[in-house]
Simulated scan of single mutants.
Amino acid sequence: MLAILAITAPIFLLIGIGYGARWSGIISREQLQGVGVFVLYCALPALVIRALTQQPLEEIFRLNYLIAYGLGSIVVFSAGLFLCLRLQRQPLNASAMHALGMAAANSGFVGYPVAAMVIGSPAAVLLALNMLIENLLIIPATLILAEMGNQHGSSLWQTVRQTVLSLAKNPVLIGLSVGILIALTGLTVPGPIDQVINMLAEAAGPAALFVIGGSLFGLHVKGMVRDVGQIVVGKLILHPLAILVAFLLIPNIDPVYFAGALLFAAAPMISIYPLFGQRYGLGGVSATAMLVATVASFFTLSLIIWWMTLAGLLTM
């Protein structure tokens, strides 16, 4: 257990440092947003580009992994949508947001730093694969359903078009496209540019954790026990369980990729979840859910690492 805490403790200490920096006034909300912009627009795209250009493309894009992770995420998203929409009779936009919180992990800001410490360099490859699922499947489905629920007079086609245009500006997907282009064409990245990419990629993990910690400052848990509770349980327990079952059903997946998928799935929800929630009238619930899930993930991630060690997926 001490070996496991040696992995998880530094990660959550960095989150704590971010929280402490905001609490003490060392860094303002606007300055923290600037660090977040750096991570999202510079560090994470560089990390994805490096991951896609360090080894042959056919060794990175493993269809069985994409099918397994996508299947597990879709099952959880659908279950969350059914629970809220059909059983609890919540509006479509609220149901879609609840489902998003359960099925889309914070791959860039939490999942990658944790996986990198546990499984090493394959974590960057998994980041690229998981972001394909999240940015091309789960998030678009959420936005389309939520916009349909708002019923602003836009047709389904207009909603889909707006979502696609928005995704086309996503910096991580742009980095993904650049990385694939370089890998397919066999272009050699000039030395100075390659060094810059490496430097930015190395900054992604620590800076992302710092931003998560600072973002948690000022959030309060009050009067939202049922909604927050089911989102957090769905994200930290049901999502990893669904990924576990999906990976057991799909054959010939590298055990390292299997372990990494569980770590990514066990991360809290995506960092922009509160922003989406605020857009659809669920700012308080989504922000509180992210706070609770981030704190609770210290324990759930430690338990998952411990279980994977006992099961032989990891060697400590």
Rank of each mutant, 00 (worst) to 15 (best):
N64M: 09
P113T: 11
G16V: 00
I144N: 04
I60P: 01
F258H: 09
A311W: 14
H239M: 15
M117L: 14
R62T: 13
A43D: 02
L32M: 13
G80I: 14
G234K: 08
V118W: 02
G281P: 07
A94I: 11
G18R: 02
V232F: 09
L66W: 04
L100S: 04
N106S: 08
S177H: 09
G277T: 00
T315G: 08
A311P: 04
D194T: 08
I231K: 02
P274W: 00
G234T: 09
L132M: 15
P190R: 12
F38T: 06
Y69Q: 05
L291N: 01
V189M: 11
L173K: 06
S154L: 11
S73E: 02
L244H: 05
Q195A: 15
P91K: 11
V178A: 15
G186H: 14
L216Q: 01
A293F: 08
G18M: 08
S297Q: 05
L167S: 10
Q158G: 07
Q33P: 03
P171C: 10
A9C: 03
Q31D: 05
V225F: 14
A96F: 09
L137E: 00
A123I: 07
L126V: 12
F264Y: 13
A261K: 05
Q195P: 03
G218L: 14
P56D: 11
G80V: 12
A116H: 03
F82Y: 11
I17V: 13
F38I: 06
L40A: 10
V125H: 03
V164Q: 07
H220V: 15
A6E: 14
L137I: 15
M308Q: 07
Y257K: 04
I7N: 04
V114N: 03
I133A: 04
F210Y: 08
E147H: 12
L187R: 07
S302G: 11
Q33I: 09
W23Y: 08
G186L: 13
E58L: 11
P240K: 09
L137W: 06
A267Y: 06
I138R: 02
V37G: 00
T142D: 02
Y273G: 00
V292E: 01
F217V: 01
V295R: 00
A259M: 10
G281I: 12
S166M: 08
M1K: 09
P255R: 10
V295T: 06
L47G: 02
G281E: 08
V256I: 14
L136G: 02
S73A: 13
S28W: 09
I133K: 01
V232H: 06
L13F: 03
E59S: 13
V48M: 07
I174E: 02
T159G: 03
K222F: 15
Q278C: 00
A68W: 07
L176M: 15
M97Q: 11
E58G: 14
G111D: 01
L248M: 12
N93R: 15
S24I: 05
A261G: 13
G70N: 05
G186N: 12
S78E: 05
F298I: 06
Q151C: 13
A204P: 05
I15R: 00
